[in-house]
Amino acid sequence: MDIRFSDCSVKFKTHVALHPFSLVLSERRIGIIGLNGSGKTTFAKLIDGLVKPTSGTVTVNGLDTVKDAKAVLSVAGFIFQNPAQQLIMPQVMEDIVFGLKAHGLGPAEAEARARAALARFGIEALGPRRVHELSGGELQLAAIASVSATGPDILIFDEPVNQLDLKNRRRVVEAIHALPEHAIVISHDLPLIEDFDRVLVFHEGRIVFDGLPAAAIKHYREIAGC
């Protein structure tokens, strides 16, 4: 993985979401922490090309998120804060197959890949279930399976264990830790990123700390005043 931000900034109308910054990311597990509204989600969406930089450039494995937007999407997958909004077909299996077909796979191959994706996270039983009826933890796992099925190299998570009970939290945390893919995780759940390779702390649209988890968490606590 090689993500490069060069003099990158993001402005929404008059509001500056991210002040200009340059950064290279290559670690396997990267955590992003910070207060609400500090620019974490905007930063994550920049990587996927869902937010375009107002100035500067972002490249993912050499692909520009503006010029090669489609190619970037197949390299980096995004699991949204609310996975219910991400699963767009009535049944879990249908959803995964639909995504794979949209990436050009034939029906039989898509079906096989979808089964493999479910098996990978131990949620084969969710295949025929209706998305509407899934619990929070099931939704999160189904979304991870659905996004990883298309084979991205990088998975970006926006608060994956937010609102999960302890049991489901553990399932999702284990799934994230076991991923062979690179993972970039926004989290308010600090223990989740404790053993990550690198953690960025965001504050008011700037990266105010970049380093190891323990020091990053300490810095974040100082900002939050607790």
């Binding site: 996927d48 869902l50 997958g77 909004q85 991400q86 949209a102």
Partner: peptide
Amino acid sequence: KDADAIADAIDARGIRGR
């Protein structure tokens, strides 16, 4: 009001790419 998030998710999954 969910429309933006759903549309973003569809684009993020590259579903309308081809």
